[in-house]
Design a protein around this nucleic acid. Sequence first.
DNA 1: AAGTAATTTTAGACTAATCTAAAAATATTT
DNA 2: AAATATTTTTAGATTAGTCTAAAATTACTT
Lengths: 218, 218
Amino acid sequence: MITLTEENYIKAIYHLSKHGKEMVSTNALADSMNTKASSATDMVKKLADKLYVNYKKYQGAILTETGNEIAIGVIRKHRLWEVFLVDKLQFSWDEVHDIAEQLEHIKSQKLIDKLDAFLGHPTHDPHGDPIPDKNGDFIFIEKIKLSQSQTGEIYSCVGVNDSSSEFLQYLNNNLIELGTKIEVLHKEVFDNSIKIKVNGTIMMVSSSVAHNLYIQKL
Amino acid sequence: MITLTEENYIKAIYHLSKHGKEMVSTNALADSMNTKASSATDMVKKLADKLYVNYKKYQGAILTETGNEIAIGVIRKHRLWEVFLVDKLQFSWDEVHDIAEQLEHIKSQKLIDKLDAFLGHPTHDPHGDPIPDKNGDFIFIEKIKLSQSQTGEIYSCVGVNDSSSEFLQYLNNNLIELGTKIEVLHKEVFDNSIKIKVNGTIMMVSSSVAHNLYIQKL
DNA sequence: AAGTAATTTTAGACTAATCTAAAAATATTT
DNA sequence: AAATATTTTTAGATTAGTCTAAAATTACTT
Ligand SMILES: [Mn+2]
Ligand SMILES: [Mn+2]
Ligand SMILES: [Mn+2]
Ligand SMILES: [Mn+2]
């Protein structure tokens, strides 16, 4: 039996290793889990015992095939619950992460299958992230960061890199949501800020914003 | 912060004390929690430290006002989730208990308020048990056990005392559900079995079944 | 190639929840 | 009112997850 904490570590390793296939240092893991390095080391050893990761002292950890499947299963649940919260319960996209963080650990295959059907087999969560299907496959759409955009082009907002409520509320305040059209007017070389037109309004966004907004050329 | 385990113990104390106001022995508590008496004693001490129960050595424990509110909150969540599972996800009433046992621990007041609204503020769960409202009040309907019925009368099934999947499946197999009409034809004095007519079919039910089925006179 | 700095692991301790076995208290029987 | 049986608590361990502080290893600089 896998514990809630183990699931959270495995998910963190998955994300830190960029979709599952590079070594993650115990320090990076500890940071992302808000624990200390010694705790991460202990956990990584336990996960290695259970064959969820391959771990070499001082080298870091990487998910095994089993570990990867667990990670994807948890992510699937997380994102499906997020869709439920937004589509069915009318939560705003900036409120759902913490609740999904809990719901993702509910254990029942039948529940997640039925939830998936109830939601109409969604392919993306409210933040534009792809939802793995029952087999763990997910749709890959090619998207770039706003920071990689070209002046003069028009894009559509398709996702966020940072789904913290702070960033999402910033987007709310500026009426940017999934599907919003963004025209790139000017890229400032000095500080990498970008002048864009959104909903008819011209605004400057910081480099930090530009790095956290995913777009697609229209 | 209250832990999941504490919530489960508090809920067990609530149920064992018959809606919150008589002493519960550590042995009874251990039985209901599938642990040993020593574990129950330890937990009851901790709950007493946190002021969720009053505990006197060798006498048992009883919920405080705070403890009672916690218990009712957990029960509210449990039963609302059960309604969700049956009404929205098409689960059968015999499948939902274990999943609700997990879901009842999700922490978000806003979630439960929105879920309640989404479900149309249901007053009873799929097993006929009343759902406490936001203030912890619940509708009390006078119901009796089938074992207390009178020969010749017609009743409606309004709930179950035992919501184990075994018992619920027994009812499924005999086409008895909430709202089903039950006519009492004969009460056997020898073994307390009862002859009833359900959906046009005459059948005998054991004393044990009769003690676990709640009915209301029509 | 040392020497210093940063990262990572180990050692030892703590809390939460559990167990077994023994001791203490209460309840029941003679 | 003893003696016996039952219930309940205590004592001491165990596992999961965490921490601090110290030791070991690796990485970076002269
Ligand atoms: Mn989580
Ligand atoms: Mn998301
Ligand atoms: Mn529970
Ligand atoms: Mn129920």
